[in-house]
Amino acid sequence: MSADVTGDGAGAEGGGGADVDQGTYECNICLDTARDAVVSLCGHLFCWPCLHQWLETRPNRQLCPVCKAGISRDKVIPLYGRGGSQMDPRTKTPPRPQGQRPEPENNHGGWTFGDGGFQMSFGIGAFPFGFFASAFNFNDGRPGPAPPGTPQAEEERVLSTLFLWIALIFMFWLLMA
């Protein structure tokens, strides 16, 4: 078969607008609407089976097929649309990587002082009684430092300076005794 394709006959598809809309959610590998869609950190959309096969094809050089950014199985995000299949995608081979569910950020209000104070008191003991600090500090999920500029950050700064002085005095007293 030989088809001259400079003509306008072959494969005329809907209007321009529809085309643009269709192209937006096409898998970059099979060029069809993405099934079991995943998106790379560089923002490129693929069917999971397509991307999986691409990663399998060259296990030593895992690059995004579009922009050649580094890519890996663990660093793609699955997309779940509402109208999607009810079937658990993980039962399919190859299983699609799972989404991650990071904890929402807590906005600590009035109980900051108590919580902070509790931790600080162990902080004092940390130098001479390190054992106790590690053995009894089962408060694992410490909140991170407050963003700079907030009153909370200011309070933390003052407290840490205060406790530093108390610790120094304590050590001085130990040496004298």
């Binding site: 394709v5 072959a10 494969g11 060029l31 069809d32």
Partner: peptide, 16 residues
Amino acid sequence: NIAVARIKREFREVVK
């Protein structure tokens, strides 16, 4: 299948 489907699409892409 994926190869045939893709070539068909790419063929159209070149033509258009």
